[in-house]
């Protein structure tokens, strides 16, 4: 029964309908067979991607919005409740808290990796050419290759009471500062943030470094002839030229922070208390443990809107001032 529903709905949103419409429209306006064939071929190329996009992005998105208006346990009958799920999301302290936690994660997932990535990339670009540059790029990018669940487990060990981090602190005489980082109410979120920095710093560095290699070297040469130091170069040439890349970095990392799930789920599960509980975790708990699919969907929709509200201005900014 469920499958039937899954199969039935996408047909309404799948592209063939619009494709045939388009064909008819073009067919009437430009009756030349050659162009029509071109159009058909074009659509055929797009069709697989469009089908996947419709099936796995648009359809679930529409369903999520639909579910959010019901009280439903996922299996039994659903009751229409209008917008009351949204009221709950915005009024229940525990759910509101998750939204705040998501924004606190932005600091670690976005601000630090982008700023750190800029500095690292410009250092590599300036002093580490050739093999050294390749090695440092590879090392920094490695976290991208490691599955996040594995990374979460490893970091869990490093941050445990007897883990490497505390051993290092003890070795340098900071034994009093040691604690079970992921179990500490004040430090759990920054610790999760640290894992995020580790994952995203390399991504930002490599992306920004690629952008730097495209900056005209003559700019740097003339600046150096004028006696500019590294800092001046960085401020006047590197950063302004990289606006577009910086925009992409911020976009991707902010989304990673707001929609965080896997690292948090594996390392802390949202605890201790609700100290690291983010919307992704609560959506999961609400939908699968409490079986409040409607409420979980409402929180998911609120999260989508939040992401859009944060990302759209960044996108516009980089598009207008970029090239």
């Amino acid at each position: 029964m469920r499958q039937a529903a899954d199969e039935a709905t996408p047909r309404q949103v799948m592209p063939p309908a619009s494709a045939s419409q388009a064909r008819r429209r073009y067919g009437r306006r430009i009756p030349w067979a050659g162009i029509r064939r071109q159009t058909i071929v074009g659509w055929l190329f797009v069709l697989p991607a469009l089908t996947m996009y419709g099936l796995f992005v648009l359809q679930p998105l529409a369903l999520t919005v639909q579910y959010s208006l019901f009280r439903w346990d996922g299996v039994g009958p659903a009751t229409w409740v209008g917008l009351s799920n949204y009221l709950t999301v915005l009024s229940e302290p525990r759910l509101v808290e998750t939204l705040f936690n998501a924004f606190r994660l932005v600091l670690f997932y976005s601000l630090v990796p982008v700023a750190g990535g800029l500095v690292t990339a410009s250092v590599i670009h300036r002093i580490a050419g050739g093999r050294l540059g390749t090695i440092s790029r590879t090392v920094l990018f490695l976290p991208q290759v490691i599955p996040l669940v594995a990374a979460g487990i490893i970091w869990g060990r490093l941050l445990s009471l007897n883990g490497l981090i505390n051993q290092l602190l003890t070795a340098v005489g900071l034994g009093d500062a040691t604690r079970a980082w992921l179990g500490d109410f004040d430090f759990a979120l920054p610790a999760v943030g640290l894992i995020g920095i580790w994952v995203l710093l390399g991504f930002c560095t490599v992306l920004l470094l690629t952008g730097m290699t495209r900056i005209d070297t003559a700019l740097f040469e003339s600046a150096r002839l004028d006696g500019a130091g590294w800092l001046q170069e960085f401020r006047s040439i590197t950063v302004p030229s990289l606006r577009y890349e910086i925009g992409v970095c911020i976009t991707v990392t902010v989304i990673a922070a707001l929609a965080a799930f896997d690292i948090v789920y594996v390392s802390t599960g949202g605890g201790p208390g609700n100290a690291t509980s983010v919307p992704g975790i609560q959506i999961y708990v609400l939908a699968f443990l409490e079986r409040q699919v409607g409420l979980a969907s409402a929180l998911a929709v609120v999260l989508i809107i939040l992401v859009l509200v944060v990302i759209l201005p960044i996108q516009r900014l980089t598009r207008e001032t970029g090239r």
């Binding site: 998105l61 579910y67 989304i255 799930f261 999961y284």
Partner: peptide, 16 residues
């Protein structure tokens, strides 16, 4: 973002 968030729910649900 859209995929990530809705993907969670897609896995489990049928139309109510």
């Amino acid at each position: 973002a859209a995929f990530a968030v809705t993907g969670i729910l897609f896995a489990a649900c049928a139309a109510p």
